[in-house]
Design a protein around this nucleic acid. Structure first.
Lengths: 110, 110
DNA sequence: TTATATACCTAAGATTTCTATGTATAAAAT
DNA sequence: ATTTTATACATAGAAATCTTAGGTATATAA
């Protein structure tokens, strides 16, 4: 994750949301998608992403399907049932986080 | 910092913004102010805050004035000149971060 | 033939935060 | 009178996350 420290702690939420949106994705695809969505402002590093995916899988949040495309390995991840309900909580937390940060940055509006 | 992982990385930005807003504050006051602004949703822990304040001071972002009030020590922190310009950058980063996160969570709006 | 893009991976270190604990005074509650 | 709560500072060890820096391998573009 390049850029500011602020993104610390948001990686798994980003991954879960993208999987909720797109059904299934593989690691490299996630890095490209985030770069695209944020117009290059946010670059997820592989050193952060792959361990995070493995952890989410170990926790039962994600499950993996391995496929061979063009002689290259792809590991497609998708949310489990548990992962889907976790994602709902995560997104609620994210919205609360954004609200709270905006209250701090712009106290006049609240 | 209680609650979700998302707040990781945002502590110094919060502190700097509050000091920009309020001129000078002491540590305990900062914890109370954040609790108040976020209606109890965000609690800054002292184990995170004090080392962060010391680090910002060591970096020349903050300077400290020690006072004795009611027989109790207070260390008032305020932004240095360097700290003030750093704060402007931090707040711009925060706004960009929030924009990016909203693009991810709500891709239809962008 | 070399560089870039695709696609996975890990290990060591840095950084941040949490948990737990410590000191001390003042005020409120039992 | 004593205990709890609030105020006010602090640190040390552990946990979590991310960066940096490498590694493997195939396919395509320069």
């Amino acid at each position: 994750m390049k850029n500011s420290q602020l993104y610390k702690g948001s990686l798994t939420t980003i991954v879960m949301k993208l999987l909720e949106e797109n059904g299934r994705m593989y690691g490299y695809e996630i890095t490209q998608k985030v770069k695209e969505i944020t117009k290059g402002e946010l670059k997820i590093t592989e050193g952060a992403l792959y361990p995070a995916l493995h952890k989410l899988e170990a926790e039962g949040v994600l499950e993996v399907e391995i496929e061979n495309v063009d002689n290259r390995l792809r590991k497609y991840y998708k949310l489990t049932e548990k992962g889907t309900s976790e994602t709902i909580n995560r997104l609620a937390e994210l919205e609360e986080f954004i609200r709270n940060m905006q209250s701090i940055v712009n106290p006049k509006l609240t």
